[in-house]
Design a protein around this nucleic acid. Structure first.
Length: 476
RNA sequence: CGCGGGGUAGAGCAGUCCGGUAGCUCGUCAGGCCCAUAACCUGGAGGUCGUAGGUUCAAAUCCUACCCCCGCAACCA
């Protein structure tokens, strides 16, 4: 049996899960479900990143130990994934014993091979923000975040020999065009690597909440070095490395395309087959940010519209990879027009006709001569192509093409007239519609699992008991 | 000359590689239908395709210059 290993990033537990987190996780879920539907054995990994100074800070501010704090916050993520019907196979936490051990093991190994060495890190340090900044980030000796004075400091640090892998990385990108996607984003990464890589500081003396460097208690391991290794530690013993797809947001593309890849090279491990960086959401045209407090809380939309409507909206609103905008207005419009009117109403009218014309016993059968039938015949091939090239929006458009054509067919064939004049034709038309609905239900199972099940049940019962997506009123 | 993405109807986007009647969704207007969740179907209105030049019989599409928006520019996941 083929195996497929897919991951989301591990999310930093200090934030509550928002639109961005849910987007990546839903996308990965859709691909995972698609693969399972093709009888591929899937390992879908998600989890949380639980180390770092910000977490320690927040914990103490709230009167918790860091561990208590992350234990509490991780539940927020698990709850949301449950509500969104996320079918992950394993949830990794970087404070887990197995992961910690793996990270220290890797660190020791690279120390031994010389890919990690002890050196001196120097940079501009802001006492208030407790972090370092580079020359380019500093404007006239002021911290770019809080504008306070910064000081040139130097401290002992372990470094990863990132520079050593510059040429190997470029060669790898060249030989594996499918590795970094979308390709236009890959160009950015290539240019970045070409511009020259510096060795990466992978330990901190000022951060206490982290995995300690084996044999050197004064240092903790840099959170990214720790976090990236989750993909490897979670897979240990499962014989599924290399990973097939890392789904990530564009803001962390570099960490995956460059640092993670170099780490794997240093370890002698294979690189993942694909790293796919999706775009960012704006909200009502504005960037999501803490200062604006405009993070979209998925729960609000799940409460009002349901889990599947939410999954549908985020996938249908923008092509996967590009940036896009989230607004309640567009959510509302899409819900009504695509889900309630097109899909929901198609199901309603079809099954009410079956009942009205006493044709509940007929079986689905494609009329290959009809334009609807032609769509159905070509469907699987096109659908698979879009899913496999991670063009989710195109797969959805294809499904809606069938839905719209089915609605058109009803209008042009006028079954209510056929009922009076041509019962043979009537059956033919309705059988064709049934096969359209079957294929819609089947192909929607990755995107909207609950809805897909509901439609299946409607097909079985030959009866709609309640609307799939009740139309919403009250918004302009 | 740091790197990259983008500027096409009221909104959101496709089309640009491989020039040839400017297309889709939503909204809007008119008509149709009556099976259906006031849903569905058909048609109309609405764009000098960021600006200025150039190549060509023909440019949203190719070339040149410029303007505007948005990311990235490594130690905050």
């Amino acid at each position: 049996m083929k195996k497929f290993y897919i991951t989301t990033p591990i999310y930093y537990v200090n934030d509550k899960p928002h639109l961005g987190h849910s987007y990546t996780t839903i996308a990965a879920d859709i691909l995972a479900r698609y693969c399972r539907s093709k009888n591929v054995e899937v390992f879908y990994l998600t989890g949380t990143d639980e180390h770092g100074s910000k977490i320690a800070e927040a914990a103490s501010k709230n009167g918790f130990t860091p561990q208590e704090w992350v234990d509490k916050n991780v539940e927020e993520f698990k709850l949301l994934w449950e509500r969104l019907n996320i079918s992950y196979d394993y949830f990794i936490r970087t404070t887990g014993e197995k992961h910690v051990k793996k990270v220290q093991e890797v660190f020791s190994k690279l120390l031994k091979t010389g890919d990690i060495y002890k050196g001196k890190y120097s940079g501009w340090y802001c006492v208030a923000c407790e972090s370092y900044y580079t020359d380019t980030q500093i404007l006239s000796f002021a911290c770019p975040d809080c504008a306070k004075e910064v000081w040139k400091l130097e401290e002992e640090s372990y470094f990863f020999k990132l520079s050593k892998y510059q040429d190997a990385l470029l060669e790898y990108y060249e030989k594996h065009p499918e590795f970094l996607q979308p390709s236009w984003r890959a160009l950015e990464m290539k240019n970045f690597v070409k511009s020259g890589l510096k060795d990466l500081s992978v330990s901190r003396t000022k951060v206490k909440w982290g995995i300690t460097v084996p044999g050197d208690e004064a240092h903790t391991i840099y959170v990214w070095f720790d976090a990236l290794l989750n993909y490897l530690s979670a897979a240990e013993g499962k014989n599924i490395w290399p990973c097939d797809v890392h789904f990530i947001g564009k803001e962390i593309f570099k960490f995956h395309a460059v640092i993670w890849s170099a780490m794997l090279m240093a370890l002698g491990e294979k690189l993942p087959k694909t790293v796919f960086a999706h775009g960012w959401w704006t909200v009502n045209g504005e960037k999501m940010s803490k200062s604006k407090g405009n993070f979209v809380n998925p729960h609000t939309f799940i409460d009002n519209y349901g889990c599947d409507a939410y999954r549908y909206f985020v996938m249908s609103q923008i092509p996967f990879g590009q940036d896009g905008d989230f607004s309640e207005k567009s959510f509302f419009d899409k819900y009504n027009s695509n889900l309630a009117n097109n899909l929901g109403n198609l199901i309603s009218r079809t099954f009410s006709m079956l009942e009205k014309f006493s044709l509940q016993d007929i079986k689905a059968e494609v009329d290959k001569e009809s334009s609807l039938g032609k769509l159905i015949v070509d469907f699987d091939k096109k659908y698979s192509k879009f899913m496999e090239s991670i063009e989710f929006i195109k797969a959805l458009e294809l499904i809606w093409e069938v839905i719209n054509e089915a609605n058109k067919t009803i209008d042009s064939e006028k079954p209510w007239n056929l009922f009076k004049i041509d019962k043979v034709k009537l059956e033919k038309v309705l059988k064709n519609l049934l096969s359209a609905i079957e294929i819609v239900s089947k192909s929607l199972s990755c995107f909207m699992p609950e809805t897909s099940e509901k439609i299946k049940k409607i097909i079985m019962d030959r009866k709609v008991t309640e609307p799939l997506f009740p139309r919403k009123d009250g918004k302009d």
